[in-house]
Nucleic acid binder design. Structure first.
Lengths: 226, 226
DNA sequence: TTTTTTTATGACAGAGTTGTGACGTTTGCA
DNA sequence: TGCAAACGTCACAACTCTGTCATAAAAAAA
């Protein structure tokens, strides 16, 4: 699960910093710009997973940015949440002129914004991602958070599940400890590489006879048997 | 499957156009009226699948329209979402007692409205098709707001019922506390995730022997046994 | 072989999560 | 108005999970 990127286009510094801080804390990678034109360029070059867009902007106003995004083949599908100050006649604007996915009126609840972002991203991700994974008698169902070996279900903790899922999604590929720390634990985790070893051991113990599905690649990392 | 029809009864032109535009984009067939009396007539003659009804209306006010709809044999089962301006003393109970399925306070998020509409329509379709949900000896009848374990009925409060219903509708899937807060409590709930725990406990207590149908998935959320 | 490097294992403490009882507030109702 | 039910919040204890470290084992290199 790679970190998702959110682009914030907002000229008010205080609000931008508030958003950057909270979104970063929530585990997103953040790009930000205080200018409409620059923000649009960033959107086109970085292709973020979601855009928070202020309506009133220097350079190029929010509506125009939105319209331009809609026009680009690569940017049209990026969900946009509009931010507006109270009294900016939002209803008409958002609804009639373009396809923002949602909008929030300032001052808004950060928590509510986070929830909406999560929901919107989830929907977009789910549209892309598939169902359950299985290989060599091991099956994982991420939605149900259930795992089974040869049909016999096994209990995994949250971390173990994420680790095994990541290995399975990259079956046949060697995964370095660093990659695993990034993907499973997250970029922010300043961990000890041996942590991965420990969890591999725990996973192997729980996998029982299927333990050898997790192969050690000495000097490199681990690999899920192809 | 034919397009579902939504009737909008709202006198403010801007809002009406906002709704027409967005709902049409979402794939619904739209009827609209700016007058209470006319709207009621349209409802009776066209029998839409859902009605968005403003509270303050010329001709005939929203509550009266709602009451009339409830009275008609053909219109009583049509779900109604009430729209009210902030400050218009809209007692939820009054509206809900009159048969409104939900209500939203202006200015509202178009996206949220669309979600609610989708949910309500889905529920109505399901209610018409099958009726009650049941699994593993637990049965729920959302229409009647009744629950039973092994045929023995149990009393659930409104929140408990919604929570259990949500779990049951996603049986086998892990539901995070955030998802549950969103779905069961709503976007605007600035709550504490422990609230979910507490309600799970209350549900389990009422479920008695069937308490283990609600499984804890540590570090992730809860899951209704598949 | 011996030495060095890398990985596996066992133990452990602290961090985090959940269940529970209690309490205060709100809401509906008599 | 007062009461009871429903609901959200909180504090706390029990428990699980998880990262870290020391050490053993294994593999590779010398």
């Amino acid at each position: 699960m790679t970190k998702q990127t959110i682009l914030i286009i907002e000229d008010e510094k205080d609000i931008r910093e508030l958003l950057v801080y909270n979104l970063r804390k929530d585990g997103y990678a953040i790009l930000d710009s205080g200018d409409g034109k620059e923000g649009l360029d960033m959107a086109r070059s970085k292709l973020p997973d979601l855009i928070l867009l202020d309506l009133m902007l220097p350079g190029l106003d929010g509506l125009s940015v939105c319209r331009e995004l809609e026009r680009g083949a690569n940017t049209a599908s990026i969900p946009v949440i509009m931010l507006t100050a109270k009294g900016e006649e939002m209803d008409r604007v958002v609804g009639l002129e373009l396809g923002a996915d949602d909008y929030m009126v300032k001052p808004f609840s950060v928590r509510e914004l986070l929830l909406r972002i999560r929901n919107i991203l989830k929907r977009h991700v789910q549209a892309a991602a598939g169902g359950s994974l299985s290989r060599h008698g091991l099956s994982l169902d991420p939605g149900a958070h259930k795992a089974a070996v040869e049909g016999v279900s096994i209990d995994l903790t949250a971390t173990e599940f994420r680790l095994l899922e990541n290995m399975l999604r990259h079956a046949g590929q060697v995964r370095s400890r660093e990659q695993l720390l990034d993907d499973v634990w997250g970029y922010h985790f300043e961990g000890y590489a041996r942590t991965v070893d420990t969890h591999m051991r725990r996973l192997r113990a729980k996998l029982g006879a299927a333990a050898d599905l997790l192969e050690t690649v000495r000097g490199v990392g681990y690999r899920f048997k192809d």
